[in-house]
Design a protein around this nucleic acid. Structure first.
Lengths: 208, 208
DNA sequence: ACCTGAACACCGTTCAAGT
DNA sequence: ACCTGAACACCGTTCAAGT
């Protein structure tokens, strides 16, 4: 019974443009309006305010990670969690500037609910589920912050690790333990470290 | 040989005022200048720009958690990590609005380096150290985001858990597992969940 | 060096008026 | 309902000029 669209642009097109602008470094209502061919005031018939756009965007980004990775019955539970976590990490790190919004806003959104429900099907109890979410989102948040320091698009991971290693100038007298671990520290923000930590976390949750 | 101060206010006083304004909900250069009795432009003789203020503030906040908790030789390593983590959590959750800045900025700061060095004295290897930092900072970030939804000062933890529980209206048909765990989910942002998860993470790291 | 006053180039949001 | 044009009340930052 709904009539044809009266809007000149689809709300999803607004979110597309918003994500582009976040990736480019600055999401403003004025730039967003220009990009979709509207006047700033017109955006307020699509979303009540700027924060509603960011929230909607965060939830949509969360939806891009394939949730069915958690359901594959042919794989052991920990493998499913790892597969989904890696997928989520990839999706979110493709848009590092949007990550802070996700931690703040979207984990109350509708998609976050679905993620939680699926995770509960794989892990022993709710506390374990939350512990994994904390680790995965925490790692992604720290990586995203670091990633923003590089250009856009950022150089590949090995180059980033090498650049970080070269930038770490540590006084061995003052920070002897740090100095000894510089190679590992330079690789903190890497897929390898992410997986290593996730394995340890899951191991700890199994023994409970 | 340095002469007496020529500045009308100490840089630390600028940071004090900046933290107040963050806690009140909005740190602007203009409000900050007014609070310390200056004109906005004068702030730029103290800090090169707004982000430098936020970075300095984040590092100072990090310094408020007692690092010596990690060194106490009379306690087992895991107990020391827990004591410090709880102290850091308390310091940061007292200023939830400042937490995003800490994740983004300060973990390259001078104080972050000292935290890392001390942690390396307690935990087996650098990868384990980072895994703990990810868990602790991730949990604090998620809790801080939630805490900002409450007033200032926020109600005590049990009241917050109860309020969250009452707000969780879940369809048992669509989200059966979530529905079954509502009490636990309402307590995600609590000292108990934080400690439980930290114990599991540390257990996982011991077995490596 | 530190600070003021004033300006520049922006913001998010509102709202009467048009279609 | 959707949109424009214009305004309101802000921003961070710069800079000549004063001390």
């Amino acid at each position: 019974m709904t009539r044809g669209p009266r809007r000149s642009v689809h709300p999803d097109a607004v979110l597309d443009a918003a994500l582009e602008l976040i990736d480019e470094g600055a999401l403003t209502m004025r730039a967003l309006a220009t990009r979709v061919g509207l006047t700033p005031g017109a955006l307020y018939t699509y979303f009540p305010d700027r924060s509603a756009i960011v929230t909607a965007l965060a939830d949509r980004l969360l939806a891009e990670a394939d949730l069915s990775l958690l359901d594959d019955p042919s794989l052991p539970p920990h493998q499913r969690v790892e597969n989904y976590s890696l997928a989520l990490r990839e999706v979110l790190l493709a848009h590092p500037a949007a990550v802070p919004a996700i931690l703040g806003a979207a984990f109350n959104g509708p998609m976050a609910l679905r993620v939680g429900e699926s995770l509960l099907g794989v892990l022993p109890d709710a506390r374990a589920t939350y512990t994994v979410m904390v680790y995965v989102l925490g790692a992604i948040a720290l990586e995203a912050a670091d990633l923003e320091a590089f250009g856009t698009p950022p150089p590949p991971e090995p180059d980033r690790v090498a650049a970080r290693r070269a930038a770490l100038l540590i006084d061995p007298e003052q920070f002897p333990r740090t100095y000894r671990e510089l190679d590992t520290i330079a690789a903190y923000n890497s897929t390898g470290q992410f997986r290593w930590g996730l394995h340890r976390v899951l191991a700890g949750l199994s023994g409970s």
